[in-house]
Each structure stands twice: as structure tokens, then as C-alpha cells.
Nucleic acid binder design. Structure first.
Lengths: 154, 154
DNA sequence: ATCCTTGCAAAGCATTTGCAGTCAC
DNA sequence: GTGACTGCAAATGCTTTGCAAGGAT
């Protein structure tokens, strides 16, 4: 939604140049794929999607490109128990909510209140906190009927 | 620390019986290993540790036992990007802080304030939140000197 | 006696790697 | 022209599985 190829290509080009790496159509296609979706695809899903416009691309290249994007800060790698890694091209602060029934990952906007973070820092005796990640679990509206109650610390 | 074998064995026995499973020395050894440490070991680390007292145990059995414990609610499986799964035998509410330098995972006591969770629920349009998991990242006291600044959303 | 568990070895899967050819700069 | 990148295929490493023997209830 609402991100033309030109815009994401330019952002990618800048990020790559900043770290001495080259702009390639494979990397551009992978980044465009991430930037245009909110489904948090797996590497394989990115591969299948990108291959439609770039039939020759290999899965290994998709993996390498995703890792490059993560290195540039243009994507985040998400891991949930048992599943294969998923990638997120959004860079604004938000959390992730994973449906225990269908596995889909939804974005939840916002950050944890600064006071809360401060309290955590205070409790984290000796550990210097530089970042955090909050993963919610539960049931999406589609799956709610089937899902029963679940433990609080999923 | 401070948990005799008898105590953890009993707890395990009860949890297993409650779900119609059998108490075995392999499962007991695995659970004792988790209950007596705060290092959040990988399956392989549990295997190496348990093997000292139970030389015949196999890695596959350790994996199966860990999964059984998770199923009983006596352990939690933790996954961090790129690393193999780690297991946590603590059942009281707490968060995890992973050192970006050495990979160690420390426990941070406490929960997120209920008001904060409520705010998240409000924002999670259509999604029914049943649980959450907070992972902090940063540098432990041992590694701090080597670690530089890091992005806020690690 | 029943049928759940174990241990072994093999299989499975996601991800990574080595390398020759190709391409961006 | 040069060094980085790609595509292929093989390799890696964690985890799971099938099955016969062993063990808990």
C-alpha cells in the first residue's frame, strides 16, 4: 500500500551505499516485497513472491538479500517458537501479535511507555538495556471462535 | 539454587500424572537440570549436563523430554534470532534480557504494568490478546566494555 | 499385561556456504 | 577493470521421526 517502487528503491540505494554495498535488482525486489506488505513473510514466501517478477532469482539470494536488509536496518527478522523466521519491512515502532491458531502476525502500533521501560532498566541489575521487543499472542478476529483460553505467559 | 531433587521430582510427577504421562528418570533429570539453573540452556547443553548423571540418555530423549515439560507448563521454550532454542524452567513471571555480545540470557523479574497491557489491548484492534513476551537486548556487565550503542528496536 | 518411553539411526527442513560466472561501479 | 553479487548445489546444524526393545503403572 502506498509505496511506489521508486521510493523504496531510493531508500535502499542510500542504505546500501552508506555501508559500501551494491544496489542490485534482486535486493530491490526483495525490499519492495517487504515494503509493500504487512504479512511478515518467511524467506520462502518472499522467494515465491519475488520470483514472479524476477524468475531467475534463487532462494539463497533471497536469504542473502534479507540478511543484507537487516544489516542495513531496513528490515527486522522476527522469530517465533517453532516457526521459520519472518521478516518485517516496517521501521516505525510497533509490536507484533501472533495468532496461536493460524500463525499470522499482526502489527500493533505504539511503544511501551517510557516509564515502564525505565522501571525495567532499574530492575535489570547490571544489564544495560539498549532495546526491547514485545510479542503478543492470542487470536485474530478470524480465528477467535476456534481458540480457547490460553496461558498468560504464552 | 535451593531446590532439592525431591521437590522438583514431586512437582514433575504431579504434572505428568495430570496429563496421563509417565514419570521417568530421564524426564526427572532434564527437569532437575532446568530447575537448578538460570542459564537458559539449549537442548544440547541440557543433554551434556544430564548425561553426567545419566550416561545412557540420548539427545532425542532430551528433546522429547523438554517438549513434554513445555506441554506440562513446567518449562518455557525461548527463541532468539539465529540461535537454537533455549529452555527456561522458571514459572514465575519475568522477562528475558539477551546480551548482544556473549548471547547469555538474564532474567528480569516482574511483569509489565496492567495499565500498559490494557492500552495494548485497546490498540490491538480485533485481536484478542491472551499473553505476551518481552525480550530485552543490550549488554551484560561482563560485556559492556566491548559493546557499543545499538538500535532501540533491537 | 498394557501401552508409554527410550535410544538409535535416519530423515527433514530451514538456512548457510563454496565457488565460478556475472554484474555494478 | 575490479571486487562485490548471484545462482547453483552441496553442506550444515538443529530438531523430529520410525521403530524395536525396555520400563512404568
Amino acid at each position: 500500500m502506498a509505496m511506489e517502487a521508486d521510493s523504496s528503491d531510493l531508500r535502499l540505494r542510500r542504505a546500501l551505499e552508506a555501508s559500501g554495498q551494491r544496489f542490485t535488482e534482486q535486493r530491490a525486489a526483495v525490499y519492495r516485497c517487504l515494503a509493500n506488505t504487512d504479512v511478515h513473510p518467511t524467506a520462502d514466501e518472499v522467494f515465491l513472491n519475488v520470483r514472479e517478477g524476477l524468475p531467475g532469482i534463487s532462494l539463497a539470494t533471497v536469504y542473502k538479500s534479507l540478511e543484507t536488509l537487516v544489516g542495513c536496518g531496513l528490515a527486522v527478522k522476527l522469530t517465533f517458537a517453532d516457526e521459520s523466521a519472518r521478516y518485517d519491512g516496517r521501521t516505525d515502532p510497533h509490536h507484533h501479535a501472533r495468532c496461536l491458531a493460524c500463525g499470522r502476525v499482526a502489527d500493533i502500533p505504539g511503544e511501551i511507555a517510557e516509564t515502564e521501560i525505565a522501571a525495567l532498566r532499574r530492575r535489570s541489575d547490571g544489564f544495560t538495556v539498549t532495546g526491547y521487543r514485545l510479542q503478543l499472542s492470542g487470536y485474530c478476529s478470524t480465528c477467535l471462535p476456534e481458540g480457547g483460553p490460553a496461558p498468560v505467559h504464552a
